[in-house]
Nucleic acid binder design. Structure first.
Lengths: 337, 337
DNA sequence: AGTCGCAGTCGAAGCGCTTCGACAACCTAT
DNA sequence: ATAGGTTGTCGAAGCGCTTCGACTGCGACT
């Protein structure tokens, strides 16, 4: 284990000089710098993270708290996590992975121990139990998702309200009057996850403004659940010609079921999905969709956080504007019979 | 920020005593222990991670290196990552998330800086470029996946060879003679990912032993790719009645296409999948499958690693025995026409 | 009664780094 | 020529913890 002192000795300078070469916090003559860098390379020196953290009270670690539930919107979470990790690296930070399991205790532990300099929370509920703690510490943090009360918090999220509105608008423009919403699993609404409720809000509001009839049904993923849900919808509103789907794992089952019932997409019914682009493209019908910009969300979150850590940039809510991409699953409403 | 010294003063003991109360490395009288614990609670003390790491040269952090590619077997990776994180916590470790992006450099950085005490590598290729480094440091590590040469390494993986064999056996028992394998994307084979090649090996070997004809085709996920692949297979081997699928995102497209072509599952053709149970259960036909035990793999990996860190347990290859669950997608081969 | 061992506690020496103040050497302006 | 400012370097003081050796009583041996 090579230490700073050894590098210093090897280069014939003092330890502090080596430190300044590394941090760039004081000017160093070119010759000295080069000599030191040379020694660092020759000796294969790596600064010790613990010592650094102790002396500077900065760990250069960002904690990322991901939801424990592995059953829901997994690819999105994964993509965000990876985007966070890679973006963090470009700013010189590493990422500590926390699962929701510990709940608020994890927040306490991490802030208390100085393990991480800051944290990013995912899967934020409207009235999340971690928020009071977060507000009470001076630990910089960013939420991915939008709680009910954003006062004193920095949040990054897709504008799900606008997303809902956009879906309705698209279907309305095509002449659809009866629209069904296939939502997330009931559990997601029960724990008041912001994005699901906001989407629904946006859908309802815009539908009302445009005079559409809207039927919302939560739906577990999978074929059987989707079959039951679809049957109920068509029973209640036989004239439904437009679908908005906000549950990745219901998309393919829905398409299969529609096909099976002889309803052609997009000739007879139109389907708009809210999902990552990859899902939309890989489906059996290329889906008109509003993308969930997972990477962008992860990147933004880290960038806000780094800004905070560097002193500039305060609390702020970043809502990413939704974009609807028209593909092959939506078309004009069939002429009413 | 409360320090050890403050706790010590508050409790009327020396700093070292507090330290020993915390670590349990020396015996402490019950009364002293209680007094110290009381002070810790009252002051809300949290040991400083950096100081601890510096003094003890142990960070209590495990690094987890996940593949950067988000396009492939994502849910499995996510599930493993979460299992690693939660299992690590139960042993008092936190998890640092590294993406494959940095490659071998990440290994160097982490071992060099003492940031982590040990590491877990996922998505190991047969001839992985990180292995030489791993062998040359004394940093404990565990691989999830199996490289070509396991000498001096600890590995945890599903026994993919046996998995392949098991799939073939099941189909053979049902009387199928012509079996097609829908494999992972070509890129997966090109970079010599162990699990894909081993599965193929197992499939081929057992098929040969049992006298089956086997046709292997790599396949990108998604509907279009699957359509093209299926067409080629049926063109080349019209008598194919058994399918083994090892690409989650090809499963549903395959089922849809078969249905569309009037081939009933399981009456006309049987399908065996290699995928997490959740996928098998949620598919439009409940799939006979060999489960990928993601959680178990993550848990095992951490437990091996902790054993190593505590000094017992050396290098070892843990191959998890595959289990095939019969569901609704396989049945007797149709009588030959 | 004297000795040994052990449980329980303390003091002090670091762990490897950052950072502050000091200082020497040099370069301008006056 | 001198005061003042820069620039580059160094020494030393920690950061908060762990851990080693040493010390003090005490009960259990001979």
């Amino acid at each position: 284990m090579v230490t700073l002192a050894e590098v210093a000795q090897h280069a014939g300078v003092s330890a502090s000089t080596v430190s300044y070469v590394l941090s760039g916090k004081r000017s160093i003559s070119t010759t000295t710098r080069q000599r030191v860098e040379q020694s660092i390379r020759e000796l294969g020196y790596h600064p010790n993270a613990g010592a650094r953290a102790l002396a500077s009270s900065r760990s250069n670690i960002i904690a990322l708290m991901i939801p424990l539930r592995t059953d829901i919107y997994v690819p999105v979470m994964m993509e965000i996590a990876i985007a966070v990790a890679t973006t963090a690296r470009t700013h010189g930070y590493d990422v500590l992975l926390l699962t929701g399991e510990e709940g608020p205790d994890a927040v306490r532990r991490v802030t208390g121990s100085g393990l991480a300099d800051a944290m990013i929370l995912m899967d934020v509920e409207l009235d999340d139990e971690r928020l009071p703690l977060l507000r009470s510490t001076d630990q910089p943090s960013v939420l991915i998702g939008l709680p009910a009360d954003t006062a004193g918090l920095t949040c990054v999220d897709l504008d799900f309200g606008a997303t809902g509105a956009l879906c309705v608008e698209h279907l309305a423009t095509l002449g659809h009057r009866d629209v069904a919403v296939i939502g997330e699993a009931p559990a997601v609404y029960e724990r008041h996850t912001g994005f699901a409720e906001r989407t629904l809000d946006g859908l309802r509001r815009r539908a009302k403004e445009l005079g559409l009839r809207l039927l919302h049904r939560p739906c577990e993923g999978g074929y059987d659940a989707m079959a039951a849900t679809l049957a109920r919808i068509l029973d209640e509103r036989p004239g439904t010609t437009g679908f908005v789907v906000q549950n990745e794992s219901a998309v393919e089952p829905l398409l299969a079921l529609l096909r099976q019932q002889g309803r052609a997409v997009p000739e007879d019914v139109s389907v708009v999905a809210i999902c990552p682009d990859q899902v939309a493209v890989q489906a059996s019908v290329r889906l008109t969709s509003v993308a969930i910009p997972a990477q962008e969300m992860g990147r933004h979150a880290v960038e806000r956080l780094v800004a905070k850590l560097e002193g500039h940039g305060g609390d702020e809510v970043v809502l990413i504007a939704p974009e609807l991409t028209v593909r092959a699953s939506t078309g004009p409403a069939p002429v009413a019979s």
